[in-house]
């Protein structure tokens, strides 16, 4: 090897030129924070105003797209008739029962497959296969199997929620840091005690993520299930309104589903907050 091969490459002088970096004062940061908050409120408000104007100014047929004022009137009507008060608990009970069944099953299977090799060998392959089936696709089959009563609705919601719960629990248990398990073993923890003190508490965040996801999916499955010849519940209100050509009530029903989604998500976040006090709080501001 000659010395010329070892010589370092020439230094690029351009990279050594100096530049001054931008300074952003407290004022600038505050301004951008307030702009963010302002736009978050104003943009949705403008959209709602445009929606209202669309019918006032005749841009859209009031029958195709009823304005917000009509939707509010629809709510008043539904409330006065007692329709909402009757439908909401029924839909919530459907979603809740299906969710409880699916989540319990997913939790048990996930723990079994996560903690025991034999559980993984028995359940993981079939569940991974079933998981790939979109639950929407099995609706006709469920009607054939379970008829058009409450059963297919609950089965559908349970079937849709079992997988997110199973997968997250299983991966949560399997994902517990081997080093923590080893540290438990060093101090004499085996079997049930090792699971209760090290593995399960450490896997809880993943299981709760599964629960949150399952709760979201349960609403999705609820909407679908209530398309199956519902005789009561929010889905029944919507279908009925559709047949009676009341798009305002249809939209009102859809918005109830959306609101349920938000409420469920907030509740789940609160549950996580209280169930996982040991996790460092990530700022949400």
């Amino acid at each position: 090897m000659t010395t010329s091969e070892l010589a370092p490459p020439p230094v690029k002088e351009a990279g050594r030129a100096l530049e001054s970096l931008a300074v952003r004062g407290r004022q600038g940061r505050l301004r951008s924070a307030w702009r963010g908050r302002f736009l978050r409120i104003v943009v949705p408000a403008v959209l709602i105003v445009l929606w209202q104007l669309s019918s006032v100014l005749g841009w859209a047929d009031e029958f195709t797209l009823p304005p917000p004022s009509r939707i509010i009137a629809a709510y008043q009507e539904l409330w006065a008739n007692g329709d909402i008060q009757a439908a909401l608990p029924i839909s919530l009970k459907r979603a809740g029962t299906g969710l409880a069944i699916g989540v319990s099953l997913g939790l048990v299977l996930g723990l079994f497959a996560g903690l025991w090799k034999i559980g993984e060998e028995i359940f993981d392959a079939p569940l991974q296969m079933l998981r790939t089936i979109p639950f929407i696709a099995v609706v006709p089959l469920f009607i054939t199997w379970f008829g058009i009563g409450e059963t297919p609705k609950l089965v559908l919601i349970a079937a849709a929620t079992v997988f997110p719960m199973y997968l997250n629990t299983y991966h949560g248990v399997r994902g517990v840091d081997k080093k923590l398990i080893e540290s438990g073993q060093t101090f004499g923890l085996r079997g049930w005690r090792l699971a209760a003190r090290v593995i399960l508490p450490t896997a809880l965040p993943a299981a709760l993520t599964g629960l949150r996801y399952a709760a979201g999916v349960s609403l999705l499955a609820l909407v679908l299930a209530e398309q199956i010849n519902a005789r009561e519940g929010i889905g029944y209100l919507v279908n009925n309104a559709n047949q009676n050509q009341r798009p305002d009530i249809v939209i009102a029903g859809i918005l109830i589903y959306a609101l349920l989604g938000i409420v469920v998500d907030v509740l789940m976040r609160l549950a996580e907050h209280f169930a996982l006090p040991w996790r460092p709080r990530v700022a949400i501001g």
Binding site: K179, L180, S183, G184, R197, V198, P201, T202, W278, R279
Partner: peptide, 8 residues
Amino acid sequence: EPRLIPAR
């Protein structure tokens, strides 16, 4: 590493 169980 300390290997403390974060949940306890």
